[in-house]
Design a protein around this nucleic acid. Structure first.
Lengths: 126, 126
DNA sequence: TCTTGACTTATAGTTGACTACAGGGCTTAC
DNA sequence: GTAAGCCCTGTAGTCAACTATAAGTCAAGA
C-alpha cells in the first residue's frame, strides 16, 4: 500500500505519516527495492494505533518510547506495561476533567436558554 | 488579592495569569491606584472558568471570543449560546475518543498482564 | 529616605505537533 | 527515452500555548 493510499484511508497527510515514522511514533515502514514506502498489514496496525493515541491527546513521546521498547524485545515488557498504565491514568484524569467542564457548560447553556437576563450571563460562575 | 496569591491558589504561574489577561481569555483585572493587579471575586470567577475550560483542552481563542461577546452586551447572547453549544460538541467528541482509546489501552494492558508472550506484545493491534 | 523585593509592560524564546518547501530519484505511459 | 506525476530525504516555517527575560515602577520595612 502506498503512502498516498494510507493517507487517504486514514484521512491524514502524507507529511504527517512520514513525520510519525521519523520521530519513531511508528516503526520504520517496509520499502520497495526503489526505496518507496510499501505499507504492510503490520505497518497499518501501527498507524492505526498511533492515530488512536494521538486523537485522545496522548503525546507522541509516549508512543515513541513504547515503540522503541517493543523493538528492544521481551526484557522491556514490565516497563511497557508501566507506560501503558501511566497513559491510562492520564486519560482517566483527562476524561473526568472533561466531564467537569461539560457540567459547567451545561449550567451555562441552561442559563442562556432558560432566562436570558444580563445579570445571569455576565457572571462567569453562571 | 495579589497576582501571587491567585497564582498560588490555583497553582498556575503569574506569567500565565498575565498572559490569559493579555490575550483576552479573561477580562481586564481590577488594579490598585499604582497599577498593580488586585483580583476581585469576579476576576477570580473568570480565572476559574478559564482554567476549567483550558484543562479540558478547549482553545484559548474560544474563551477570548466568549469574553469579548460578554463585554459587548446582550445583543451577543444568541452568538454566545451558539459558541457554548459548539464547545460542548467538541468536548463530547473528545470524551468518546478518550473512551475508545481507553478500551484499546485496557486490551493491551490485559494482554501484558495475562500472557506475556512476545507474539501478543509486538502486534500493535494487541 | 533608601533599599529590597514584588510588581509592571513589552518582547523574545521554547515546546510539541505538525506543515510546507527544495532538490532530487523512481515509474509508467507514450 | 523522455515527460509527468508520485515518491524520497532534509530542512525550514508555522501555530498554539506558554515561559523567560529585560528594563523599569511601586510599596513596605529599616
Amino acid at each position: 500500500m502506498t503512502i498516498k493510499e494510507v493517507s487517504e484511508r486514514y484521512n491524514i497527510s502524507q507529511n504527517t505519516l512520514r513525520y510519525y515514522e521519523r520521530v519513531g511514533m511508528i516503526p520504520r515502514v517496509h520499502r520497495t527495492s526503489g526505496g518507496i514506502r510499501d505499507y504492510q498489514e503490520e505497518d497499518l496496525g501501527w498507524v492505526e494505533l498511533a492515530l488512536c493515541m494521538r486523537s485522545a491527546g496522548l503525546p507522541i513521546e509516549a508512543m515513541s518510547e513504547y515503540v522503541k521498547m517493543v523493538q528492544q524485545g521481551d526484557s522491556t515488557i514490565p516497563a511497557r506495561l508501566e507506560l501503558l498504565l501511566r497513559q491510562r491514568e492520564k486519560l482517566l484524569a483527562q476524561k473526568s476533567q472533561i466531564e467537569e467542564t461539560l457540567e459547567r457548560l451545561n449550567v451555562k447553556i441552561a442559563n442562556y436558554t432558560k432566562c436570558g437576563t444580563l445579570s445571569a450571563c455576565t457572571d462567569p460562575a453562571q
